[in-house]
Every structure is written in C-alpha cells, then in structure tokens.
Amino acid sequence: MSIEISQVEHVAELARLQLSREELERLSTQLSHILTYMEELNATETGGVAGTASVVAGEANVLRDDEVQPSLSQDQALSNAPEAVDGMFQVPQIIGDR
C-alpha cells in the first residue's frame, strides 16, 4: 500500500489541516506503512458478518421529553471563546468583500 503525496494533500484538505511540505512527505511514508499493516484485515473472512458500531447491549433510542431545563448561561457558553462580541462568537468575515 502506497499513499501518494497528492492523496495526503486531499485527505488533509478534508480534515482541514494545513500541513507543511515536510509533514506531507513524512505522512505519505508513515500512512503507507501503517495502512499496509492494516491490510492484514483482508485475511479475515467477514462475508455476512454485521458490523459493530456500538457494544451497548439491546441498543435502543434514548429519548427524553422536550422540556426546558437549566443549561449554561450565555456568558458561560461564551466564556471560552477566543473572540466574542455582543453575546456572539466572532469569526473572520465570511460574506462579501473585505
């Protein structure tokens, strides 16, 4: 299994990571190495086997009534924001010209 640099770049874009050239090269080697190991899974026959997403026994939806309950205040919810203004999270401009 060999992962080209262009594939690494594509995955980094999906993952919103701005990797350096050096990181792209290193990850190309490392991911190739790790994924080769993971291909050992192909030796295991899984025809007709249902996948396990959760080990919770007797899985069922966990629902509750839609009632107003105490929660964090606006100040608490914003207390960790890198930038906040007028009770809102502030981000770089996303609409129109700057």
Binding site: I3, Q7, L17, L19, V91, P92, Q93
Partner: peptide
C-alpha cells in the same frame, strides 16, 4: 484572512504530530 484559513491554521498549529496522524488515518 478568512474562515476556512482560520480553521486550517488553527488545527495545524494546535494539534501535535500524533493527533494529526490519527486524524489523517481516520479521515482516510
């Protein structure tokens, strides 16, 4: 300069090498 650059730069500078490696593996 913009929101998507902010996401990418924040995650690039904020995560260490093993976390990035695992995010990349999982995303792949």
């Amino acid at each position: 300069p913009n929101l998507s650059e902010m996401y990418r730069a924040t995650r690039q500078e904020g995560f260490g090498p093993e976390v990035k490696r695992r995010i990349m593996l999982g995303t792949y």
